[in-house]
């Protein structure tokens, strides 16, 4: 029963929403609005999972003096200090909370993503070394698109920005459209599997 009742809730609610899409009667529309209020009330508690999980993982590391446990202390202090700053001084501009966002989180996040510029360059080098025709086509398309976005491309040849635009509007569009259709069919199939009770991994393990 610990698995069957949740499964039945998903099947019944899911079927009702399929019907609601095709038969938008007032009763079903009212039920949908009511259900949305419930979902919004349930959703904020999900962050408890993240906070407790992060605290438990790092707390256990500190307790057991695992390798690099000192960094877990940094994580927990960062977590506690930022959250407390938000609750005590508020989240408006000019508060310690926003100072932490502007001078700690945002610079580190942006730098972390900018590091990928270096690793992407090395990935491109490896792809070129693969020396297959397909890899070469990928790299040529990438170089043309990159040059087409900056003024250097137009300085080299007037055809580079034109070709870049053509790549984006024609073969790229065809690839994205076909992949989108595949993704849509995959989403529909997975949703149907959930609705019919075939896909049950969201229930987790155990009895």
């Amino acid at each position: 029963m610990k698995r069957q009742i949740p499964l039945m809730i998903v099947v019944i609610l899911g079927s009702m929403f399929v019907v609601h899409t095709f038969v938008p009667h007032k009763i079903s529309a009212d039920f949908f609005d009511w259900f949305q209020d419930w979902i919004k009330a349930i959703s904020p508690f999900a962050i408890l999972l993240g906070v407790i999980s992060l605290s438990m993982v790092n707390g256990t590391k500190i307790k057991r003096k695992a390798p690099n446990w000192q960094y877990s202390v940094v994580t927990l202090i960062g977590l506690a200090f930022t959250a407390i700053a938000g609750f005590v001084w508020g989240t408006q501009t000019g508060t310690p909370y926003m100072w932490l966002f502007k001078n700690v989180q945002m610079p580190m996040g942006a730098t972390m993503f900018s590091l990928l510029a270096f690793y992407i360059a090395s990935a491109a080098y490896k792809a070129f070394r693969a020396r297959s025709t397909e890899a070469t086509v990928l790299l040529i398309a990438a170089v043309i698109v990159m040059l087409g976005q900056v003024s250097l491309g137009a300085m080299i040849s007037k055809w580079i920005p034109i070709t870049s635009k053509w790549i984006l509007n024609v073969p790229n569009l065809a690839a994205k459209r076909a992949i989108m259709i595949g993704v849509g069919l995959g989403m529909t199939a997975t949703s149907l599997k959930i609705l019919l009770g075939i896909e049950r991994t969201y229930l987790g393990g155990g009895k």
């Binding site: 960094y71 938000g86 700690v104 989180q105």
Partner: peptide
């Protein structure tokens, strides 16, 4: 480590 903590705290 600080980024992980601050992001969650934020």
């Amino acid at each position: 480590a600080l980024l992980v903590g601050v992001s969650m705290g934020y």
